[in-house]
């Protein structure tokens, strides 16, 4: 099957620190892939490198056949990648509606998809005119995901959507992501293995700036030794 996203030997430096030390993986179309690993393994850096926010120094990043490395972030996004960063990064001073409106790539994007977006996140519809900074943590996370759904994206990069949320809200957000996976391929960074064990089709395991294993999710969940060794969890 064709790869939506393919990284080959990607190296990224932040200042003089060598963070990604040759990351290679391919992500298939029509799948939800979990990017896993301990703190500092390079998961967030991988997403930021794909977006061009921390440009790769070396290697190749291909998205639907187009090379991303060397392009500015806004062009990468315009190719059809929705990015939901960690800590949400919603615009707190803007209203919910303005947050969504800003994500339009073509006039009328929001109007076209509003119904679908609000069926996923009914809370947002009631809060349209509210400053986003006044939303609860869970609603802010929903807004951050909703923002990535406004234009027609062909890949979503979602960074730790469960971070800092109460268990009930985590479930709600994950349920929404579960519904999204039917529509668009998702690369999901998540610490909370429990939250995504039934969600992800594939996994990519990172350690110290490299991909150490990847494969179908069931394979990882069935291997106690790997879970213990790479993620420090006892399943």
């Amino acid at each position: 099957m064709d790869a939506v996203l393919e990284l080959r030997d990607v190296h990224t430096f932040i200042g003089s620190f060598h963070i990604l030390k040759g990351v290679s993986f391919a992500m298939r179309a029509g799948s939800l892939t979990a990017l896993l690993g301990r703190n500092g393994a390079g998961k967030t850096t991988t997403l930021r490198t794909i977006m061009g926010l921390w440009p790769a120094a070396q290697g190749s990043i291909r998205f639907l056949g187009e090379e991303l490395r060397g392009r500015p972030t806004h062009e990468i996004a315009a190719l059809g990648i929705g990015y939901v960063p960690e800590h949400r990064a919603i615009f707190r001073g803007l209203t919910v509606e303005e947050n969504l409106k800003l994500a339009e790539r073509r006039r009328g994007d929001l109007a076209r998809r509003a119904e679908w977006i609000f069926s996923l996140f009914p809370d947002l519809k009631a809060a349209l005119k509210k400053p986003a900074g006044l939303l609860s943590g869970g609603q802010q996370q929903m807004l951050a995901i909703a923002r990535a759904l406004v234009p027609e994206n062909r890949l979503l990069l979602i960074d730790e959507p469960s971070e800092g949320l109460a268990p009930m809200l985590v479930e709600h957000v994950m349920a929404a992501i579960h519904r999204l996976r039917e529509e668009v391929p998702i690369l999901l960074v998540e610490q909370n293995l429990h939250a995504i064990r039934h969600l992800a089709d594939h996994y990519i395991l990172m350690e110290d700036g490299r991909v150490v294993r990847s494969g179908p999710m069931a394979e990882l969940l069935g291997n106690r030794e790997w879970l213990q060794r790479y993620l420090g969890v006892t399943a």
Binding site: M51, E75, A77, A78, A89, E98, N99
Partner: peptide
Amino acid sequence: RIGIAVRAAVEDREMVEALGIPV
């Protein structure tokens, strides 16, 4: 839209760029 983008970029330039707007 430009005004909204300016206000958003005052808060977080990087995210505006990541939405596909040339900051």
